[in-house]
């Protein structure tokens, strides 16, 4: 890359780091305070109490089967995305006729549908299908709404495989399916891990679909468990934030693990 380090950019990055990190520090610090301690010092004060009570509480209200349900939803959503998106992107990139470009535009339109606008029709669809208060009923629309951005990312990735490679395979008599499994998939691994991380994040942090489409305690996911820290007129801030931090840890681990691939995958979005 560059021959010499760019000091100005480095200084700017450190300032930005502070802007990002201060709120995160405030959040972490609050989770180790009692509610009374937090009430005395507030957001920016120096902590005067230290406790693990908030984490213990969060564990007791939100981390039994809520956790298991969230994992089920997340894994299923990722599975659907991984099965559906690569063939679609493959077609979008390699079959550039009118129908596929229409499909591509359909997905651009999909990018612009706010879930809040269509939640009521979705509720009726899911009810009709008999999937209300069933995790499958949460999984299907969550996966559907993850498709547009995943398609955009993976198509970008696949686009960078040079046409000559496909033509070489075709000359050898390979079918499109063979080219897909032997060429397109292996060469877009980065994009694949990116869409895995993004769909997992969407499913893990999803609130609206589980809120409207489930009801019983046995089908509750972690995001819905956070309300245990609020009252009609206020919030137990340390308790809520502790629950947030806890629900974030698994995602953070997955993210750190997949970060390298994530960056590689996004390179595809940008054309290279």
């Amino acid at each position: 890359m560059k021959a010499r380090p760019n000091y100005a950019a480095g200084v700017g990055a450190v300032i930005w780091l502070a802007i990002i990190a201060i709120p995160l520090y405030v959040m972490l610090q609050a989770t180790f305070e009692t509610q009374a301690g937090y009430g005395k010092t507030g957001a920016l004060g120096i902590p005067n109490t230290f406790t693990f009570e908030n984490y213990v509480n969060a564990f007791s209200v939100g981390f039994g089967h809520y956790f298991v349900n969230t994992v089920i939803v997340t894994v299923s959503v990722v599975a659907i995305v991984v099965v559906l998106v690569p063939p679609l992107s493959y077609a979008v990139v390699r079959n550039q006729n009118r129908a596929t470009s229409l499909v591509f535009r359909l997905f651009l339109l999909g990018l612009a549908i706010p879930a809040q606008a269509v939640i009521v029709p979705i509720f009726y669809l899911i009810s009709l299908a008999g999937l209300y208060d069933n995790l499958i009923g949460v999984i299907l629309p969550t996966a559907a709404f993850a498709l547009p951005i995943c398609t955009l990312i993976l198509s970008g990735s696949m686009r960078d495989i040079t046409p000559e490679l496909y033509e070489a395979m075709a000359v050898d008599g390979a079918s499109p399916a063979r080219a897909f499994f032997r060429l397109a998939i292996p060469l877009s691994k980065g994009g694949l891990s990116t869409i895995i991380v993004f769909s997992a994040l969407q499913a893990w942090n999803g609130f609206l679909f589980p809120l409207i489409l489930t009801q019983s305690d046995s089908n509750r996911v972690i995001t819905l468990g956070l309300f245990n820290f609020q009252t009609q007129y206020g919030v137990n801030i340390p308790g809520l934030l502790a629950a947030v931090v806890m629900s974030m840890v698994p995602v953070l681990l997955v993210y750190l693990f997949a970060r390298r691939s994530l960056v590689q995958g996004l390179m595809g979005v940008g054309g290279k």
Binding site: L84, P87, N97, V103
Partner: peptide, 13 residues
Amino acid sequence: VGRPGFAWAVPAT
């Protein structure tokens, strides 16, 4: 050459 058919896009669509 060896282009995939539109069918590849159908399930997701």
